[in-house]
């Protein structure tokens, strides 16, 4: 298994798309969590006079978790979904399952080594964002002469773990839809439509229409946000990826998400194991 894992890590590590996605995701997060708020705080005097104090405190190191966490169910999920679809779906578009499945390792071993490699690959998608966010918040605190008190360690540990967990759900989802669609294009398209549009629209109506309310209870973002709520994050319903649906308890959310990971991977694994491998699609 370790050899197969090393092969899959090599595939991810040497792929430019992996690094582009990581850098872009880091950039998006820091720009939205620190750069834009900071310039708003600096530039707009009336703004500063009214709410400046509140705004600035959000950007300080001890508020690291609440500043960053909200990005994971929204954009982070999409970035990782694309990562997973590229990793799995490209095997179909390039026809590389043929050589991969004719070496020695069984199909399931190849599949789960890829899943494991993705689980490892999303660690920097969590850690690097928090690291960069911490640096940004330290710079702001020093520049403004504010407290550089670090975030609560236990809160940070939970935030890192939950962030990884949420990305893992999205990655599993990406793996499943790329196996189902035997490729990348359709899977990325549908994944993004689901993540950015469909779920948001349905969630927005979920209070009016009971049936949609039930449906939204199994949605990835409903549960992701619900899981994060106890960590002191509030979400607004503005912009793409915004969330205004109902929430469930954190425990229920954790269970639903864990079941979803299992279901997504089980469906994908069952198909990978049984389906005929013909040429590139």
């Amino acid at each position: 298994m370790l050899d197969a894992l090393a092969a899959q890590l090599l595939l991810l590590r040497k792929r430019a798309a992996t690094w582009i996605l990581l850098c872009f995701w880091m950039l998006v997060t820091v720009v939205f969590a620190y750069v834009l708020p900071y310039f708003a705080y600096k530039g707009d005097i009336r703004f500063r006079a009214r709410t400046g104090g509140v705004l600035l405190s959000v950007m300080l190191p001890h508020n690291l978790v609440s500043s960053l966490l909200g990005g994971f169910p929204a954009f982070g999920g999409i970035f990782v979904l694309i990562l997973a679809v590229l990793a799995m779906g490209s095997e179909y578009t390039w026809g590389t399952l043929t050589p991969a499945f004719t070496q020695k390792a069984s199909r399931l071993k190849v599949f789960f080594s890829k899943v494991l490699a993705l689980a490892i690959a999303i660690v920097p998608f969590v850690v690097m964002v928090y690291l960069l966010g911490y640096i940004a918040s330290m710079l702001i605190a020093l520049k403004e002469g504010q407290s550089t008190q670090p975030p609560d360690l236990w809160l940070l540990v939970r935030a890192l773990a939950f962030s990884w967990f949420i990305l893992a759900v999205w990655a599993s989802f990406g793996v499943m839809i790329s196996v189902l669609s035997k490729g990348t294009s359709l899977a990325i398209g549908l994944g993004i439509i689901y993540g950015l549009v469909l779920e948001g629209v349905i969630s927005a109506f979920s209070r009016q229409i009971t049936l949609l309310g039930y449906l939204s209870k199994i949605f990835l973002r409903t549960n992701s946000y619900s899981l994060l709520s106890p960590l002191g994050v509030t979400f607004t319903g503005e912009g793409p990826g915004g969330f205004s649906g109902s929430t469930v308890s954190a425990t229920q959310a954790a269970i639903v998400l864990a079941i979803e990971i299992v279901v997504f991977l089980a469906v994908a694994a069952a198909i990978v194991r049984r389906r005929d491998v013909t040429g590139a699609s």
Partner: peptide
């Protein structure tokens, strides 16, 4: 085996492609 047109990872070098396969076949 060599089946139909050879399928490899386009972004990897020839040698890295063989490394991936070597890992999968011990």
């Amino acid at each position: 085996t060599l089946v139909e047109t050879p399928a490899f990872y386009p972004y990897l070098s020839g040698r890295d492609n063989l490394r991936v396969l070597a890992r999968l076949s011990d």
